[in-house]
Amino acid sequence: MDRTTIDLWVGIFVALGLAALLGLAMKVGNLTTSSIGETYYVTANFENIGGLKPRAPVKSAGVVVGRVGEISFDPKTYEAVVSLNIDKRYGFPQDTFANIYTAGLLGEQYIGLEAGGDEQPLKNGDKITQTQDAVVLEKLISQFLYSKATESDDQPEKKSASTETDADSLDASPLDKISHK
């Protein structure tokens, strides 16, 4: 085979490789979505962020408006400090509420922003004061078990005394009791 033909093919080969890498970066990876548009950042403190990861989406009304930046721990308040990079196009009032939600039952966690009524908008470096922690499944379960245990402590003699009341206790489902608490 001719030398120049080989060079040509190798050139095509390398170009294809670079194109594929570019394709992966643009079309498959999130290299583009993170750098799109200019952003401003605000911070928010949470007592518990659960499984929130850097680069998780920040949504408002279900629309992605930014991404989670750094997550760090504040040793003074023992709270997690989460910085949010929000697209410059979207302004939010000062009293915006930041929640950590879970997509689906076991999906990834994201931050949901709920706008308040303040006239002052959030500026670069501001702090969101109103936050709600992540729902931790283990906590929920242990809460449920605890309430169940206290409940059965309350009425031990009743249970052992008669079996007729079993039907009553079946009526009240455990979930109802949690919501009543």
Binding site: L21, K27, V28, R55
Partner: peptide, 19 residues
């Protein structure tokens, strides 16, 4: 198909590590 992919495939942790 594409947007879910983009949201979950990380440039550094997935693509560059694969390379």
């Amino acid at each position: 198909f594409w947007s879910q992919m983009q949201a979950n495939v990380d440039w550094r942790h997935d693509i560059l590590n694969g390379v």
